[in-house]
Simulated scan of single mutants.
Amino acid sequence: MPATRIETRRGWIGTRRPDVIEAVQRALLTGLKLPEDDRCVRLLEYDHDAMIVPSGRGASYTVVEITLFSGRTLEAKRRLYAALVEELSVFGVPADDIKTVLVEVRPENWGLRGSPASELDLGYRIDV
């Protein structure tokens, strides 16, 4: 049940917000092998003067921060990184403009339905 935040500068997405969010969701499904209904993706756009980016990066520089349960394999993370680049390339975002940050949380530190996730049947494996 990752919680995903997409952060970028305002202007390049325009009316394609839902499409960008769905593209990131597809990358999560591909990379982490999540169930289709596992969805928590937010998009934040900043004014140009509210976000500095590394030199040489374009207007579409995007940070995708994913908070997720610890336990994913390196192979799953590789699939995720590659899927994000592939999905966002449709919008003209070059691979150099994509930064992905994974924040891994132990399931007992994540509350769902009033209980620690470590005590619930999530319906899928996290050690993919």
Rank of each mutant, 00 (worst) to 15 (best):
L68I: 08
R42V: 11
R16Q: 13
V101Q: 12
I98Y: 01
A117K: 09
G11E: 11
E86G: 06
L28H: 09
A95R: 15
T15S: 14
R5M: 14
V41S: 00
R72P: 01
Y61L: 05
T62G: 01
S89G: 03
E87R: 15
G71V: 03
V24H: 05
V64I: 15
L29N: 06
R125C: 04
T62L: 00
D37M: 13
P54E: 05
A76P: 06
V101N: 12
L34Y: 07
A27F: 01
G11N: 10
V93D: 07
V20S: 03
D19N: 05
V105S: 02
R79V: 10
M51C: 08
K33W: 06
E104A: 11
D121E: 12
P116C: 07
L43C: 12
H48G: 03
I6A: 07
P18K: 08
D121T: 09
I126V: 15
E119M: 10
A83K: 09
D19C: 01
K77P: 08
G31M: 12
Y46G: 03
R10G: 08
L122R: 15
P107L: 10
G92Q: 04
L74Y: 04
Y124E: 11
R26N: 00
V24A: 02
E86F: 05
I98K: 04
G71L: 01
V90E: 15
R26Y: 00
G31E: 07
L80E: 00
L43D: 09
F91T: 00
H48N: 14
W12L: 05
D97Y: 05
I126L: 13
A83V: 03
A23W: 00
A117L: 09
Q25W: 13
R10L: 14
T8V: 12
V24N: 07
V101C: 11
S55T: 11
R113W: 06
D49L: 12
G11K: 02
W12K: 04
D97K: 12
I13Y: 01
I66H: 04
G56P: 06
L34A: 01
G114S: 11
Y124T: 12
D37I: 00
G71K: 03
K33N: 14
K77M: 09
A59K: 15
I126D: 04
H48F: 10
I6V: 11
S60W: 04
V101E: 02
G114W: 02
V85T: 13
Y46S: 11
I21H: 09
